[in-house]
Computed example of a mutant assay.
Amino acid sequence: METFNEVNEINTLRIIFIETVSRQFVAITGCGIYVYLNPVAINELFNRYLDSSVSINTFARQCVKKVVA
């Protein structure tokens, strides 16, 4: 069972992830993440990020390249 602190850490990381990916979308396309992806897709990306071993910034750049390409 997850503790309150673990849930808070995941939620904080999710917010940081969404902000980072959105900044990458704005930097590359001029539009935020929600122009390209719905909340369900963003949550799926977050779950994939958790399973990866790369930094948030690297993962965000990879996401933008895949979505925009």
Rank of each mutant, 00 (worst) to 15 (best):
V64L: 05
T3H: 11
V67P: 03
N11G: 05
S55N: 03
R23T: 12
I42V: 15
G30T: 09
N38W: 10
S52A: 12
C31N: 11
G32C: 02
L13M: 01
K65Q: 10
I16R: 15
M1K: 11
L13E: 06
D51N: 12
E19T: 10
A60M: 02
E19P: 00
N57R: 08
A41L: 04
Y34N: 05
A41W: 01
P39T: 14
L13V: 00
L45K: 04
G32M: 01
A41D: 08
S53R: 13
F46Y: 12
K66R: 07
K66A: 06
V26Y: 15
G32L: 01
E44Y: 02
T58Q: 05
V67W: 07
K65A: 11
Q24W: 08
S53G: 14
V54Q: 10
F46Q: 02
I18V: 11
E19Y: 10
N38L: 06
Q24T: 14
N47W: 10
V64R: 05
F46R: 02
V7D: 02
C31I: 01
V64T: 09
I42H: 09
T3P: 05
S22V: 08
V35S: 06
S52H: 10
S55L: 02
Y34Q: 02
P39Y: 14
F46C: 02
Q62N: 13
A69D: 12
V7G: 00
A69H: 09
I42T: 08
T12Q: 05
C31V: 05
N11C: 07
V64S: 06
S52F: 10
G32H: 04
N11K: 13
V21N: 08
I56V: 15
L37E: 10
I56D: 06
L13Q: 04
T12K: 05
S55I: 01
I42L: 06
G30F: 13
T12I: 01
